[in-house]
Design a binder for these strands. Sequence first.
DNA 1: CGGCTTTGACCTGCGC
DNA 2: GCGCAGGTCAAAGCCG
Length: 496
Amino acid sequence: MEPVDHRRVVNEMDFFAGDRTSGRHVKADDDHHVKSESERPGWLQDQAEDVNTGLNLLTTNSTASEKSSRNLKEKQRVNQLADVRAELERINAENQRLKLTLSQVNNNYHALQMHLVSLMEQQQNRIAESSEANNTETDKPMEDKTHGEGIVARQFMDLGQPAKAGKDEGSESLSEDRSPELSGSAGNTIVESMERREKKSTTTEGLPHPHGWSPNKAPKFNNTSKDNEEAQQTMAMIRRARVSVRARSEASMISDGCQWRKYGQKMAKGNPCPRAYYRCTMATGCPVRKQVQRCAEDRTILVTTYEGNHNHPLPPAAMAMASTTSAAASTILSGSMPSADGIMNSNLVPKGMMLPGLPSLVTLSASAPFPTLTLDLTHNPNQRPLNQFHPISPHWPHNSSSFPPHLFGHPIYNQPKLLGNFLSSQGNINELSGHLAQNQMRGHPVANTAAAITADPNFTAALVAAITSIIGNSHRDNSGGNNNSTTSRNTGDNNT
DNA sequence: CGGCTTTGACCTGCGC
DNA sequence: GCGCAGGTCAAAGCCG
């Protein structure tokens, strides 16, 4: 594994953080045309003075033609200044438009989220009324992973059925005060509650699946009510939702802070590169799995697809991924109709990029049997390799020989508070929007929003973290005692 | 020797 | 029903 070039990152950060009060474009113009004499750096003024002195022509023997020339230059400067101002105004207008778009997306997201929660509440109430009184787990806190009955519930979850490991939290599904140490992935809101409700209606029905987590083997529900069917379809789709990250890396696997053990490899059709299957081994029975495969068209691109959610506390290095779920999860949930068409027809989840100015950065595909959110980090205009994004997380063991490109090595990892907010179901879009605004306030270029965003490692890291962790959080309770494997448990660092 | 990777076999879903 | 493809299992081998 190649070491991360810290110095380069710092330089880039310094570059972006430099004294730029008017943005990149303005700065470029300033350097050549706009700045007045008084605004010029001292060395520039000195240089001008030296030139005049050296020629010994301008100051002592001013002619009418020279004055005319000066006036002409002044006019040119004025015109250029006006042009720059016009450009600034245009940029600001674009900025406002982008903000407005983000705001609208956020509002739509909230509306759909609340609507979904409401529907699921109604669904759960109906189920509760019709079900037997054997749901004795409803008073248990769902976060209590060490609770014996909670474990039992998780074992049921492993059947592919959502867990109802705790009490009904419909009303608190949006809360953020979930302990990250317990959850390992806070902000797991709607899906969580949905899965719990679903489990509540099914824990007495299913039989343990020998393979534990198995999204494609989700048991069929016996409940034939129309509402339940719809809910089941929705849940099935959400449970199968995946997050795919495309990034350039020469390493065999990107680091996300978790420990993985390879359990299979398969040649996929249409791709000469084999697809590797990994299972999270940070905890017994963790249902999270991921697939790693190189892109057939560009083998420098590594595609990592995550499924499932962690059922254990996560190290700080993995928190960003596991705890900032909700932005992208909500993206999927926003389109969480019982069919792929529902997603694609959603005004929240267009077929292409959701965020204006980020072409091909994030896409949601409904062509697959399950929604797959793809984060494409290969479109960075700087063509910056993934492993040069950020300083390495201090939590990552510095095993130089196996040092992976650290996708989530951004200092954001060390800001659980920020993450906690960021992962909140309401906060992510706002966070992204706020990040844009902050960049603009700092004087970051706004003329080319896409370039500005993709060039900003902070934004990229935040976006990556938010999207990549969707599934992990959204399925946090969809885990269980998956001890099916007779192979050994991974206790070492398998992130290579 | 424990833990991990490899890899062929097996299972399941889906389309024809 | 059959074949194909994706996904997983688990025995065998490798490695520290």
